Measured scan of single mutants.
Amino acid sequence: GPREVTMKKGDILTLLNSTNKDWWKVEVNDRQGFVPAAYVKKLDSGTGKELVLALYDYQ
């Protein structure tokens, strides 16, 4: 199956793709996968990378 990404509340993840309104593709610890968009919030990183903050645990 697809590689699952797990996250804990407060984690910072790299946002790869947010074109789908329900599932965003993120990368964390060299793993890529989809997380519910409602579970993360975009951060203003000030760099080229888009980052998101995990609002809830997800696994």
Rank of each mutant, 00 (worst) to 15 (best):
W24H: 01
S45A: 10
V35W: 01
T6L: 11
K9V: 08
F34M: 08
D11F: 04
K25C: 13
K25A: 08
S45W: 12
E50K: 10
L15I: 05
G48I: 08
V40I: 06
N17S: 13
K9S: 06
L43Y: 07
I12N: 02
V28W: 10
L16A: 02
L51D: 03
N29D: 12
K9P: 06
Q59Y: 13
N20R: 07
G1F: 13
T14W: 10
T6W: 13
K21D: 10
G33E: 08
D30R: 07
R31G: 11
V35S: 00
K41Y: 08
K9I: 07
L53P: 00
A37I: 04
W24S: 02
Q59L: 09
V5R: 01
W24M: 03
L16W: 02
N29H: 10
D22T: 12
E4P: 15
L55E: 03
Q32H: 10
K8W: 07
R3Q: 14
V26R: 00
D57I: 04
A37T: 05
T14D: 04
R3M: 14
L16Q: 03
Y56G: 04
L51S: 09
V35I: 08
K21L: 08
D30L: 07
K8E: 05
K25T: 06
D11H: 04
P2C: 15
W23F: 06
D11I: 03
A38Q: 10
V40P: 01
D44A: 12
V5C: 06
V26G: 00
E4Q: 12
L43G: 02
G10Y: 04
T19G: 08
E50D: 13
T19H: 09
D30K: 07
D57W: 03
E4G: 15
T19K: 10
K21S: 11
D11Q: 11
S45N: 11
A38N: 13
Y58Q: 01
Y39K: 05
L13Q: 01
D44W: 11
E4M: 13
Q32P: 09
V52W: 05
K21Q: 10
N29F: 07
V5P: 04
G33V: 15
D11S: 05
R31S: 12
E27N: 04
E27T: 06
R3E: 11
L55D: 01
S18V: 06
D44Y: 12
N20V: 04
R31Q: 14
D30Y: 07
L53V: 15
T14N: 07
N20M: 07
W23V: 03
D30W: 05
V5A: 05
K25R: 09
N29C: 07
E50H: 11
N29W: 05
N17A: 08
L43T: 04
Y58W: 14
L43F: 11
K9W: 03
Q32Y: 11
R31M: 15
V52Y: 09
W23G: 00
V5M: 15
V28Q: 11
W23D: 02
V5N: 02
L53T: 06
K8H: 07
N20Y: 07
Y58L: 03
V5T: 06
D30C: 10
G33N: 05
K41A: 12
G33P: 03
K8L: 07
T47P: 13
V26Q: 00
D11R: 01
T14F: 10
W24N: 01
G10C: 04
K41G: 05
L55C: 06
M7G: 01
L55G: 01
L15R: 00
W24E: 01
L15A: 02
T19S: 14
Q59E: 14
F34H: 05
A37V: 06
D44V: 11
D57N: 08
D11K: 01
Y56L: 09
L53Q: 10
E50N: 13
W24G: 00
N17H: 06
Q59W: 12
L13A: 06
R3G: 14
T14H: 09
D22C: 14
G1S: 12
K21V: 09
I12D: 00
N17E: 14
R3W: 15
E27I: 10
V35C: 03
Y58V: 02
R3N: 14
Q32N: 06
F34A: 02
S18P: 05
V52I: 05
T47W: 10
M7I: 12
W24K: 00
P2H: 13
L55Q: 04
V26W: 02
G46S: 13
S18F: 06
G46D: 14
R3P: 11
G1W: 14
T19M: 09
Y58P: 00
I12T: 06
L53W: 05
P36T: 03
A38W: 10
E27F: 06
Q59S: 15
V28E: 05
G10V: 01
L13C: 08
K41W: 06
N20C: 09
L15K: 00
W24R: 00
S45C: 14
V28A: 11
Y39C: 11
L43Q: 04
V40K: 01
S18M: 09
D57F: 05
N29S: 08
V26A: 01
G48C: 06
A38E: 10
S45L: 13
Q59F: 11
P2K: 13
V26L: 03
